[in-house]
Design a protein around this nucleic acid. Structure first.
Lengths: 83, 83
DNA sequence: GAGAATTTGTACGTATGTATG
DNA sequence: ACATACATACGTACAAATTCT
């Protein structure tokens, strides 16, 4: 699953969170790396910004990423010691 | 329509794009001329910068203007040969 | 060349409204 | 009523490019 599927009954933000989580777990998005911007993900998946933000907030709640206002969202890793 | 109208149900960025397009078509903003800065338009119309940028991006998509980072947005004309 | 000011570029934070299931 | 999803529109902050002093 590399892109969200509008025909899939699973909520788009859930699908997108799953996709991003997989990219992190697989190492495609390594610790300390910058997660694609909301604007980029919005265009890449053809969803609204609100949907992208909901997906990212799920990962944030899971402690997988950290978001810095005006900078972006970064992948957290054990070598980041929770930071 | 010289200023955007917050009571008008038409989106502010659409209204502003319409106004600027008219200024270009009428010759008030001739080819090669500098379109007022985002900051100026923002104050002139009482809208946010993001709204101004959305309006200008419409004109850019229509090929009416060209934006140069750090310089400004310029009106395109036939004598500019698409540049 | 240095430094300030201007202007556009990027990115996130928040609020509200609309529509649908 | 609630969840999902999109659109509009405000704001903040900083970076990058250019221009001016």
């Amino acid at each position: 699953m590399s892109h969200v599927d509008h025909m899939n009954p699973i909520p788009l933000y859930t699908q997108l969170a799953d996709i991003l989580r997989e990219r992190i777990k697989s190492g495609e998005l390594p610790p300390r790396s910058l997660v694609p911007s909301e604007s980029y993900l919005q265009q890449e998946h053809g969803v609204s910004r609100g949907t992208v933000r909901m997906a990212i907030s799920i990962l944030r709640d899971e402690g997988l990423v950290v978001t810095i206002s005006g900078r972006g969202t970064f992948v957290k890793g054990r070598d980041l010691k929770g930071k």
